[in-house]
Nucleic acid binder design. Structure first.
Lengths: 218, 218
DNA sequence: CGGACGCTAACTGTTGACAATCGTCCTGTC
DNA sequence: GACAGGACGATTGTCAACAGTTAGCGTCCG
C-alpha cells in the first residue's frame, strides 16, 4: 500500500492554489492569470487551466469567459446558501453515522473534540477552527456516503473562504469553538439516538447562523 | 435581451455528450476517446478534454488517469447515496420554497403536476418521468438557493443515469408517476405548512427508496 | 470640456505536435 | 498448456504557438 499517488500536474497546481486561497495569500478579488501561474509553477498553461476549472467548480474561483478567473468575494447570501445545504446534509449524515459508524470512528470523533478544546485553551484559534471542521467532517465520513463527504469538503472550503472574506473583521474575533454543542452531538451519536443527534446538529446550525446573521451590520 | 449566448466550445461539446449519455446513446461502460470525439465534433482535443472534465465533475463520467474516460455504471450503492442527499436537500428546499416561492412559482409547480398526469394518461412514460423531475426541480428553484439548485441538477442527472443503467430492466417498467404524492407536497407548499411539506417530501423519498430497494434481486 | 471612436496591449480560447504511459499481443520458456 | 517477459500500438498528459476578444488608454470631434 501507500502506493505512489501519481498526482496529475493539474491536481498539484489546484491543491497549491486552493491552499493559497484558503490561507488568504490570494485575497478576494485577485485575478488568477494563467500565464503568470504557469510560469510560477514551472508548467504550461494547460494544467493551470485544468486547475482553475477545478477550483471554479469547487466554488473557490469564478470564471468569467474571455475575461479571466478571479477569487470570489462571497457575500451574506452565499453564507446563507452554504449553511442551508450544510445543515441539510449534516442532519442526514449524523443519522447515517449512527447506523454506519464503528467504535473506532466514534473514538476519532471524540479526539477532534478534545483537540478543539486543547487548541482553544492554548489560544490557537486557527487550530481550534480546524479541529472544529474536522469534527464535522468526521461525522460526514462516518455516514459512509462518499458523495456526501465530497460535498461537505466543497462546502467547508467555501465556509473557510467566507469566514476569511465576509467576516474577517468582526465575527471571527469573537468566535469561540462550540465544544459543548459538539459534545452533545457526539454523545447522541454514541448513544445511538438519531432523533436527538439530528436535532442537536440542527440546533447547532440554527445557533451559528443566527449569530452570524446578527453580527454584521451591512 | 436574449443576448447571444457566446457558448464556449467545450460547453457545447459537454452539453451534447451529456444528452447522449442521458439518452442512453452512450451506454454505461462506453469509453470516451478524446481523439474520436474531437474528430466527431470537428474541434480539437482541448475543448473535448474540458468537456470530459466537466462531465466527470458532474458524475456523468469517470476519469481514470492515463487510462481514459468512461460512462460510469452506477450501482445500488450509488443510488442510495444520491437519494440520501436528494432527500436531505429537497426537504430543506421545500421549507425555503414556502418562504420564498411566489404565486407564479406555485402555478408553475402545479403545471408540471398536470403535465405529469397528462403524459402518463397518454402512455408517454418518458415525458411523465421528465415532468416528474421538473416538479422536483421547480421546488428547488423556488428555494431561491442557487447552490441547492445546481446541486439538484447534478444529482438529478445522476438519477436519470441510474434509472437507465441499474434499473433499466425491472423497475422502470412498473414505474408509475407518483402524482398523488406530488400533489400532497404541492398542496402543503401552497398552504404554507413547512412541517407537512417537509414530511411529505420525506415520505415520498422513503417510499421511492424502499420500492427501488425491494425490486432488484442482486 | 465631455463623450465617442479607434488603437494597443494583454490575456484567453483553441489548435496541432511531442513525449510518456498503459494495454495488448506475441513469443518463449517452464 | 499456462504463465512471464518484451515489443508494439493506441491514447493520454503536456507543451508551445496562433487567433480572437476584451479592457484600458489616448485622441479626435462636437
Amino acid at each position: 500500500m501507500a502506493a505512489i499517488e501519481h498526482k496529475q500536474l493539474w491536481q498539484a497546481v489546484a491543491d497549491q492554489l486552493r491552499d493559497e486561497i484558503l490561507d488568504g495569500r490570494l485575497s478576494a478579488g485577485s485575478r488568477l492569470v494563467e500565464t503568470e501561474l504557469a510560469e510560477r509553477f514551472g508548467v504550461s498553461r494547460g494544467p493551470v487551466r485544468d486547475a482553475l476549472a477545478e477550483l471554479a467548480r469547487a466554488g473557490l474561483a469564478v470564471d468569467l469567459p474571455r475575461r479571466g478567473t478571479f477569487v470570489p468575494s462571497l457575500t451574506e447570501k452565499d453564507l446563507a446558501e452554504v449553511y442551508v445545504i450544510r445543515r441539510a446534509i449534516e442532519e442526514a449524515a449524523v443519522r447515517l453515522a449512527i447506523e454506519q459508524g464503528t467504535d473506532q470512528d466514534i473514538t476519532a470523533m471524540y479526539a477532534t473534540l478534545e483537540q478543539t478544546e486543547r487548541a482553544y485553551r492554548a489560544d490557537d484559534l486557527a487550530a481550534a477552527w480546524e479541529a472544529d471542521m474536522a469534527f464535522h467532517r468526521c461525522i460526514c465520513r462516518m455516514s459512509g456516503n462518499g458523495r456526501l463527504l465530497m460535498l461537505f469538503d466543497e462546502l467547508s472550503s467555501q465556509t473557510v473562504l467566507l469566514m476569511r472574506t465576509a467576516l474577517a473583521t468582526h465575527a471571527s474575533l469573537g468566535w469561540t469553538p462550540p465544544v459543548e454543542v459538539h459534545r452533545q452531538i457526539a454523545d447522541a451519536i454514541r448513544a445511538r439516538e438519531p432523533r436527538a443527534a439530528s436535532a442537536a446538529v440542527g440546533a447547532h446550525f440554527q445557533y451559528t447562523q443566527d449569530r452570524l446573521r446578527a453580527s454584521p451590520e451591512n
